[in-house]
Computed example of a mutant assay.
Amino acid sequence: MHALCIGLMSGTSMDAVDAALCRMDENRVVGVEAVHRLEYPAPLRRRLIDLQLDPDTSLTLRELAELDHGVAETFAAAALGVMHGRPAATVCCIGSHGQTVFHDPQRARNSLQLGDPSLIAARTGVTVVADFRRADVARGGQGAPLVPAFHLASFGTLTPCAVLNLGGIANLTVLPGSGTAYGFDTGPGNGLLDAWIARHRNARYDRGGQWAATGTVNTALLEACLDDDYFRRPPPKSTGRDHFNLAWLQQRFPALEALPAADVQRTLVEVTARSISAQLQRTAPDIRRVLVCGGGVHNPVLLASLRSAMPGVTIESTLAAGLDPDQVEAAAFAWLAWRRLQGRPGNLPSATGASAAAILGGIYAP
């Protein structure tokens, strides 16, 4: 017997809320029935990005409450969009990741996502599961990345391989032929690329890598960026836009603005590709197949750089394994919600560093 679950996801890029209506069997997603994508209102997105970039910024409780409400309304609208008139009673649950605005599991020992799940439940009439990360953090974990457990459930029969999510921050899941699966955030994915083109060309992202393709890699900038302790740190580890941002870039290379802007964009592509390839080689040198998902899969310049940095490794979309690369993360949170309702753990301690497997998320009735 199959159940229908909705996954809602907005990552560090905040380009849109992705919704996926998934058909589940007892253990996994067996199909995606429908998808919907809804952009944040521009003022809301700008304020959320500002919070991510500077978690020490001044924010009143009223502003925080308004942001929480605005995110929830957008998530609810995305869920209703993917339901497309389907009766609420036919949907088992909604898994809402919410919007991360603060993530510091080591010093603050917390990870905060906005998007009131009670409001989403009220708007849709469907039970919502949300707040997935903090049960892992409470057990000493990073609370991230959470998708490796889903990658294992979805692609575990294809081992040995790795799954690479190219969002604003990139994360990697290693599924070895034998031994324990694990994962970690590798560092920048599309986030630096998006920020740089937004500053210089007033665009949300570099469509098809077209602007980067006009530039040339600057070796000095590349080496300065890659000389960051985060890349050398062993997993488990997680990071975010509060670390890898344009202020970080300026700090790494003070002469940044003297360089041709297109050269910087092309170099940032290489930073993403080289940081990923070096960490995969260090942690799993025997992997010869990488399945790619996330927005970066649509950037042929980035994919070409990854292939150049990893000769002998097959790099292909997760579509080759049966799951659309644009649907993987939303589907992961449908799966995590389904796991919660079944009373099954959703984290992978080898990825997050938690002391034990945990049942993730709270349940919010409509």
Rank of each mutant, 00 (worst) to 15 (best):
342 Q>S: 10
287 I>H: 01
272 T>D: 01
42 A>V: 05
30 V>E: 10
174 V>G: 01
348 L>Q: 04
265 Q>C: 07
186 T>A: 06
258 A>D: 14
116 D>A: 13
69 H>A: 07
228 D>F: 12
112 L>V: 15
311 P>W: 03
132 F>K: 04
157 T>W: 08
124 T>L: 04
214 T>V: 12
203 A>W: 11
59 L>F: 13
228 D>R: 06
348 L>Y: 07
15 D>K: 06
294 G>F: 07
8 L>W: 07
55 P>N: 12
316 E>C: 15
194 D>L: 04
52 Q>I: 07
294 G>Q: 03
278 A>S: 15
359 I>T: 12
122 A>F: 01
249 L>Q: 11
84 H>F: 11
336 L>N: 04
14 M>Y: 06
33 E>V: 14
183 G>P: 03
213 A>G: 08
238 S>R: 04
357 A>N: 05
346 G>A: 11
257 E>K: 05
291 L>Y: 05
259 L>D: 01
120 I>L: 03
287 I>S: 05
339 R>H: 12
106 Q>H: 10
86 R>K: 11
134 R>Y: 05
216 T>C: 10
67 L>D: 10
33 E>N: 06
333 F>Y: 13
59 L>P: 10
265 Q>K: 01
150 F>G: 14
91 V>Y: 00
338 W>Y: 15
177 G>V: 13
126 V>Y: 00
325 P>C: 04
321 A>T: 00
291 L>C: 02
103 H>E: 07
129 V>S: 01
231 F>V: 02
167 G>D: 14
355 S>V: 08
323 L>I: 05
83 M>E: 04
86 R>Q: 13
361 G>I: 01
96 S>D: 02
359 I>G: 09
164 L>I: 03
158 L>H: 12
3 A>L: 14
196 W>L: 09
218 N>S: 04
352 T>D: 09
148 P>C: 03
208 G>C: 05
295 G>I: 09
178 S>H: 15
78 A>F: 07
48 L>K: 07
290 V>F: 00
341 L>A: 05
66 E>C: 14
20 A>S: 05
144 A>Y: 00
355 S>H: 14
342 Q>D: 05
349 P>I: 03
346 G>S: 06
30 V>R: 10
55 P>I: 11
285 P>N: 03
352 T>R: 04
146 L>V: 01
348 L>P: 07
152 L>D: 15
135 A>N: 09
26 E>D: 02
329 E>L: 00
305 S>H: 11
316 E>I: 06
291 L>Q: 01
48 L>F: 08
346 G>K: 06
71 V>N: 02
261 A>Y: 03
214 T>M: 14
40 Y>N: 10
295 G>Q: 00
7 G>W: 07
186 T>H: 04
40 Y>R: 08
330 A>Y: 02
280 L>S: 04
239 T>C: 06
17 V>C: 09
92 C>D: 15
202 N>A: 14
51 L>F: 09
152 L>S: 13
272 T>A: 01
39 E>A: 12
324 D>K: 01
49 I>F: 13
321 A>Q: 02
